[in-house]
Simulated assay, not measured.
Amino acid sequence: MVVERVDGLGLRVPPNTFTVRDIEKYVESDRLVDVIDVEQQTELQMSFGEFANYFTDPHRKKLLNLISLEVSNTKLGGLVEAPLIARKLDFLNNYWQESAAIPDGPIQKPAVAKYCLISAKDSYTDFHIDFGGTSVWYHILWVHWTITKG
């Protein structure tokens, strides 16, 4: 589904002037985050402040991709509301009971609601399937394009 106009979507996101440093203020600099080393496809952990320093450094030595910053229970989570259609189609939030009984004990509802993804130029994520039952939507806040002639 491609939506060409945002009018009437019931969507709330930060303004396009929002930066990585703004995100840092909302999720806290010392929060540990998992990032992907794109070339090695390995995971490493650092503070969000370290990641923000990496991301704002024009002379990066590695390609890092932050794809698992869950922000639902942060100040940033309060700035984001999924589009109405995503909320209506979301199996996890509409049909999952808070805990479901199984022979070995209850299965808790996964706490996966709002993620912030931050990727540097030339980074990518391997093909994957997100958590079962979640309705995934993306809003690109900003892209910084550099065009070189040559």
Results as ranks from 00 to 15, higher is better:
residue 119 S to F: 12
residue 67 I to F: 11
residue 73 N to T: 12
residue 56 T to N: 07
residue 127 F to V: 02
residue 112 V to Q: 14
residue 47 S to G: 00
residue 71 V to F: 11
residue 144 H to S: 07
residue 2 V to C: 13
residue 89 L to R: 11
residue 90 D to S: 05
residue 46 M to G: 01
residue 90 D to H: 08
residue 62 K to V: 14
residue 98 E to W: 09
residue 31 R to T: 15
residue 102 I to R: 11
residue 124 Y to M: 12
residue 124 Y to L: 06
residue 108 Q to W: 09
residue 115 Y to T: 14
residue 130 D to L: 14
residue 39 E to R: 10
residue 13 V to A: 10
residue 13 V to D: 08
residue 124 Y to G: 01
residue 8 G to S: 05
residue 23 I to N: 03
residue 95 Y to E: 01
residue 104 D to P: 05
residue 80 V to D: 05
residue 59 H to I: 08
residue 105 G to T: 01
residue 144 H to Y: 07
residue 146 T to N: 02
residue 16 N to I: 07
residue 108 Q to H: 10
residue 146 T to S: 03
residue 58 P to S: 05
residue 59 H to Y: 10
residue 91 F to P: 00
residue 122 D to K: 03
residue 94 N to A: 09
residue 40 Q to R: 14
residue 90 D to A: 13
residue 115 Y to K: 07
residue 83 P to R: 12
residue 66 L to Y: 14
residue 31 R to P: 09
residue 65 N to P: 07
residue 129 I to D: 02
residue 55 F to M: 03
residue 121 K to S: 05
residue 82 A to W: 05
residue 107 I to Q: 07
residue 17 T to N: 09
residue 119 S to L: 11
residue 28 E to R: 14
residue 30 D to P: 00
residue 109 K to T: 03
residue 113 A to Y: 07
residue 101 A to Q: 15
residue 18 F to C: 02
residue 72 S to H: 09
residue 95 Y to N: 01
residue 9 L to V: 12
residue 78 G to S: 15
residue 141 L to P: 00
residue 12 R to C: 09
residue 20 V to D: 08
residue 64 L to C: 11
residue 32 L to W: 11
residue 10 G to M: 15
residue 72 S to I: 12
residue 87 R to A: 08
residue 47 S to N: 01
residue 138 Y to C: 02
residue 96 W to H: 06
residue 93 N to R: 10
residue 148 T to W: 10
residue 57 D to K: 03
residue 52 A to Y: 04
residue 139 H to I: 12
residue 113 A to C: 04
residue 105 G to S: 11
